[in-house]
């Protein structure tokens, strides 16, 4: 039903509940690590003793996207992997956010001119926070996470369903499509 998201206009009760929920969500952002490249190791360092993302409640890296809130793209997205990223993003439950980590995920980085790479994660996914660096230091990612928290905390959810349509992934260019079909085809065989 979605009391908050489907509300036409805010009132006292709705804003109170919404404030509570925003507080809860911002203090409990669980990760889904897509782990596409080496920035993932910097992300792993962020769970360790020095940085400890668990101190702000984001310490759980769930293996299944069904239980996570933030999709982390720690590296370049190849054209073959793009549909898989889109599918994983779509299988996360609402509300969900995306962090693009590192220059490859922002713009393609060193692989920008490559024939097999996308030009950044935002060509296929709606990215909320971009964290630059090559690789990103854990401090930088922590800063990005704090920015995302501030955004989750500060954005009202009342009437969101009227404002924000379901994210439809952009159609894949036809030349990728053939590659994707081929890729999926060879997996169906086994």
């Amino acid at each position: 039903m979605g009391l908050i998201e489907n509300a036409e206009r805010p009132n006292f009760i709705l804003t109170t509940i919404d404030t509570l929920l925003r507080w809860g969500r911002s203090h409990s952002l669980w990760w889904c690590n897509a782990g596409s490249a080496c920035c993932s190791l910097e992300f792993a360092a962020m769970g360790g003793a020095r940085y400890d993302m668990d101190r702000i409640g984001s310490g759980l890296v769930r293996a299944s996207p069904r239980q996570s809130d933030v999709l982390l793209i720690p590296g370049p997205i190849t054209k073959k992997m793009a549909p898989i990223f889109v599918r994983v993003y779509n299988q996360m439950p609402d509300p969900k956010w995306v962090i693009a980590m590192g220059s490859c995920a922002i713009s393609g980085g060193a692989f920008r001119e490559s024939y097999s790479m996308t030009r950044g994660a935002d060509t296929v996914l709606p990215v909320d926070v971009y964290v630059p660096g090559c690789p990103v230091r854990p401090e930088a990612l922590f800063y990005g996470l704090l920015k995302l928290r501030a955004r989750v905390r500060g954005t009202s959810n009342i009437g969101l369903a009227h404002r924000e349509p379901i994210y439809v992934p952009p159609d894949l260019p036809p030349e990728w499509e053939a590659e994707v079909r081929e890729f999926l085809g060879e997996h169906e065989a086994c």
Binding site: G57, D94, P95
Partner: peptide
């Protein structure tokens, strides 16, 4: 972090149920 379980609980309650 004593309020952490409450934050998790609120988050889960307001998470889409697929």
């Amino acid at each position: 972090g004593i309020l952490q379980p409450f934050a998790d609980m609120l988050k889960m309650l307001s998470k889409e149920d697929i």
